[in-house]
Amino acid sequence: MLLTKNISLFRADKIIFENINLSIGSGKILGLKGKNGSGKTSLIKTILCILEPTSGSIFWKGKNIEKNLYDFYNNVTYIADKTSSLKQLTINENIKIWKNIFLSKINNDQIEKILQTLKLDSYKNKKTNILSLGETKKLELLRLIIENKKIWILDEPFTNLDSEAIDVIKQTFEDHCKKEGSIIFSSHQNVQINTTEDLLL
C-alpha cells in the first residue's frame, strides 16, 4: 500500500535521514525506533508529505503519492506529539467537533465505552485544560477510533501514558491490524509491541 524508495532528507546541510526504504501493507505494524533527534518525526512528516524529501519517492497504491495525495489523506490518521484538542472546550465538545469535521460514523455509545476504558468518562463535561498530560494523550488517541481510517501514523504515542493505558493501546493496535489496517509509530521508549518490522534510525 505505502512504499518509500530511497528517501533522504537534508536540512541546512545536515543529514536528517538517508536512503530509507519502507513498505507497509494491510495488517502490519512498523515501529520507528531511535533516540531523540534521530529523525523519527521528520520521517513521519515526510511520509505525510508535509516535508518534501531531498531525494527519493513515496508511492501510495502503486502511484506516486503526489499524484494520489488526497486519496492517501482520506486513508490516514495522524497523531502528532502535540495536543490537538482545544483546551477551551470540554472533552464532549472536542469529540463532537472531531466527529463532525472528520465525518465519523461512530455512535455515542461506542464513544462512551471507549471513554470508560480510558477512564476519561468522569471528565467528559470538563474542559480539557484540567486534564493531566497522560489523560490528554489518551483523548488524543481517541481520534484514531473517531476518524476510523486504514493507516494510523503516530508520533510518540506512548509518551506520558501509564502501563495500563499502554496495554489498552497495544490491544487497539492489534484489533486494528486484524481489520486489515496498518500502523506506523515512532518511539524512543522500550515498549514491547508485536511489530511486523522495526526501523532503527
Partner: peptide
C-alpha cells in the same frame, strides 16, 4: 499551528 490542528485539518480534506 502550535497544536498541530493545521496539519490535522489539512489531512482531513
Amino acid at each position: 499551528f502550535d497544536t498541530g490542528n493545521l496539519i490535522i485539518l489539512h489531512l482531513n480534506g
